[in-house]
């Protein structure tokens, strides 16, 4: 019961696989640069970053990690080689639901943080924080919408493409969470 990769889906031409991996590595490069910038700024403005991090809610962010991992699990179930069309649809819809739940929790979290964001004493912390997490949030919204669209017409290629991208969004969050909230 393994997840199906693009090369195994049998329906994806090489061009699709190439475009997918260009997209995946573009995302990883963009988030990598942003997260390294966050780390470097945290060294330069050490005290401001430590003070600003007290306004974040690692518990809510931790909850969001569980939500996104659950969504990724459902996406992986949809991508199994032996999944029926009905199972694929159900798993994709559940994955999208958890994606939207992630967004709701994140927006709730923003509500508590937005007040502190304007204070100059926190330096560039909140600018980078909202750029990085907001950019990721947009990816989750976009990905969840695409998951629903693919659930409507689940072709093997489309399922493999969106689940691969969804796992990359998951992977980015898993690395982003300790860097932004804990270090």
């Amino acid at each position: 019961m393994e997840a199906r990769t693009l090369s195994e889906s049998g329906a994806a031409p090489d061009a699709d696989a190439f475009v997918l991996w260009v997209l995946v590595w573009s995302e990883l490069a963009a988030f990598g640069i942003l997260l390294v910038a966050f780390l470097v700024a945290g060294i330069v403005q050490r005290q401001a970053f430590v003070a600003a991090q007290d306004h974040l809610d690692p518990l809510l962010a931790g909850m969001n990690t569980l939500v996104l991992l659950t969504s990724g699990w459902q996406a992986a179930l949809a991508g199994r080689t032996d999944a029926s069309r009905h199972e694929q649809r159900r798993s994709l819809v559940i994955a999208a639901f958890f994606g939207f739940l992630f967004c709701a929790i994140k927006l709730f979290e923003y509500r508590g943080e937005i007040g502190a964001a304007g204070e100059a004493t926190y330096g560039v912390f909140f600018e980078l924080y909202f750029i990085i997490t907001g950019f990721h949030l947009l990816h989750v919204v976009f990905g969840a919408v695409i998951l629903l669209l693919v659930a409507w017409q689940p072709s093997p290629t489309n399922v493999t493409l969106i689940t691969t991208l969804w796992h990359v969004i998951d992977l980015i969050w898993v690395s982003m969470f300790p860097i932004v909230y804990l270090v």
């Binding site: 997840a3 990769t5 990598g32 992977l171």
Partner: peptide, 30 residues
């Protein structure tokens, strides 16, 4: 996530290790 959710356990070396290397680089930076 890479090996089991994405199904790259039997994929090429580059696919298996490229994505994990990205996470490793960020963890080392942190």
């Amino acid at each position: 996530i890479v090996l089991d959710f994405m199904g790259f356990r039997n994929a090429s070396f580059a696919l298996r290790h490229g994505l994990v290397a990205w996470a490793l680089a960020l963890s080392l930076a942190a």
